[in-house]
Amino acid sequence: MNVLMLAAQEVRAGLRNRWVVATTLLLAALALSLVLLGSAPTGIVKADPLAVVVVSLASLTIFLVPLIALLLSFDAIVGEQERGTLMLLLSYPVARWQVIVGKALGQACILGFATLLGYGVAAGALALKVDIGTPAWAAFAAMVLTSAMLGAAFISMGVLASTVVRERATAAGIAVGIWLLFVLLYDTALLGILVADQGRHVTQGALNAVLLLNPADVYRIFNMTASDSVSTYAGLAGPGNAAPLPPAVLFAVLAAWVVAPLVLAVVAFKRKSV
């Protein structure tokens, strides 16, 4: 019950701060742009328009959703501490783990709602224009679900960063570093290693393991390979090929990326003096 109350408080704070509205409008506007522009040539090449949109939205999500998630969560704990409200919160009959989980859950609900509504509006607009096959709808639903999970994973990392520092500026710097590492630098470095290696030492198993260490890569591979209707149009979406990994494994790893940083945040918060 305490977790749900704290989560509801985070959602109310997001509504007051216009986070929900701003995030939903941003995702909807970008998704609609991709629908209106990206699906235009599909009638010529006989491609499934929604499958093409899924590929485009998945690529957009990798860059945008982690950034929004980190902006939501980087001051979850340290912000309360600087405002002097954290000690007051802990004076109530609420466990420290409930504070962490409640705040992360509330922020994940904000981002999940914005993702569902924003992407759903775009898919609805596309459905009014053309007929869409059932496999493409299944791929779109999986993309929306895993997009929310990707956001939750970065929210967990943002909460962890907010827990281990004592200043908002430091937490903000760590959040920017997390985004740069997982979204930009990781794949660039991996691609450089693969080019330099030329297949001599990096085996497929090693490559799969390395890709699983990045939630953005797990998300990308899942959405580009889980559905035949999407993988046809995905092409080369990033470094390496982890197609041998089944979708269930990729989904489980993405879920682990949601849980693991949150567990570390709980451990760190229990040891934190306020």
Rank of each mutant, 00 (worst) to 15 (best):
G102A: 06
L67D: 03
A114L: 11
L27P: 00
L50E: 03
V35F: 11
L64P: 09
I132T: 07
I62S: 07
E82D: 11
T85Y: 14
F74I: 03
G124S: 07
G124H: 04
D48K: 00
G118M: 08
L30G: 02
A104F: 02
L90C: 07
F63M: 15
L57C: 05
L60I: 07
V55F: 12
P135V: 07
V35P: 04
L71F: 11
A136H: 09
L25G: 12
L86D: 15
L116C: 09
R96V: 09
G133F: 02
A51H: 05
L90E: 12
D131L: 03
I44L: 14
I132W: 07
P135Y: 03
T115R: 04
Q81W: 00
A104R: 02
G133N: 01
A51K: 02
F113T: 13
L32R: 03
L116F: 12
A122Q: 06
L117T: 09
L111P: 03
D131C: 00
L117A: 13
L57D: 04
Y119P: 09
Q98R: 12
L57F: 09
V52S: 01
G112T: 04
E82R: 05
A136I: 05
L70H: 14
A28K: 06
G102K: 05
A136S: 14
Q98S: 13
I100D: 02
Q81E: 08
L88D: 10
G106W: 09
W137F: 04
T42D: 06
L88Y: 06
W137Y: 06
D131Q: 07
L128S: 14
L57S: 06
G112K: 09
F74C: 08
D48A: 11
M87F: 03
G84D: 01
L72E: 02
V52G: 01
L88F: 14
I77D: 06
G133R: 10
I62H: 03
L70I: 15
S39R: 07
A108S: 15
